[in-house]
């Protein structure tokens, strides 16, 4: 017992701060990535061959850009786009500085995941709504996105977990977080306990997210 309180006295504050930093980076980056990724996915689905707004060039361009970005590992991307990051947010360090690479990394991933989610929607249903004279914009949100909510939730769960993994490298630009804590203290200063605790926390976090994602998706699924 005393050992635990001793540990908490020593590390408690830092762990809590690291958790908050991880949450902060993940949630901000996730939100922005969804805002970029979901419309991208809708574009991909609508411009692909045989779709309503079929357009070889738009589809081909988006498809290539997404593939190119997705081929670069996060740790390389982080440094590779430093000038871009600096241009966008004025700094390349701290939480602010890491959001840009996190978004650049995650948005294309989300676009891919959402694309496959949206493709699950039966084209016949979209056509039925088109036949009722409902404009495409409304169909995208009220039919396409609505019908694929279960798959979207599962996709976002996967993306979030990937994002948490990426935030572990945020320490490299001084943004903190659980990964940074484990690296700086657990690895560099041989504090094995800190390492164990952060790993444990990450496991709990990922498990919790996946379970929540599964439950929500199951609730939304009606067939």
């Amino acid at each position: 017992m005393s050992k635990i309180s001793e540990f908490l006295d020593l590390w408690g504050d830092q762990i809590i701060e690291a958790i908050l930093q991880t949450f902060q980076m993940t949630s901000i980056a996730l939100l922005i990535s969804i805002l970029i990724g979901l419309p991208l996915a809708a574009f991909l689905v609508l411009t692909r061959q045989g779709a309503r707004l079929e357009n070889k060039y738009v589809y081909g361009f988006l498809n290539t850009v997404i593939n190119v970005i997705r081929s670069v590992p996060f740790i390389i991307l982080l440094f590779f786009i430093l000038p871009f990051t600096k241009f966008i947010v004025g700094t390349s360090i701290g939480v602010k500085g890491v959001i840009v690479p996190l978004v650049v990394y995650t948005a294309p991933y989300i676009a891919r995941l959402m694309e496959s989610a949206l493709l699950e929607v039966d084209r016949g249903v979209l056509e039925a709504y088109e036949a009722m004279g409902i404009p495409t914009k409304k169909i995208i949100w009220n039919v396409l996105v609505r019908e694929s909510r279960p798959a979207i939730v599962l996709g976002l769960t996967i993306a979030t977990i990937g994002l948490i993994g990426a935030t572990a490298m945020a320490g490299l630009v001084g943004a903190g977080g659980l990964g940074d804590l484990a690296y700086r203290f657990g690895h560099l200063r041989y504090e094995a306990d800190v390492m164990y605790v952060t790993v444990f926390l990450l496991i709990v976090l990922v498990q919790g997210l996946q379970t929540a994602g599964n439950v929500i998706a199951a609730r939304l699924r009606k067939d």
């Binding site: 016949g124 009722m132 609505r146 019908e147």
Partner: peptide
Amino acid sequence: KLSASRKKIGMIFQGFNLLKTA
């Protein structure tokens, strides 16, 4: 205008085409 005209033309299909989640 086409959208407006389509509202006056209902359509049903072999596969029903209902929203599964509604």
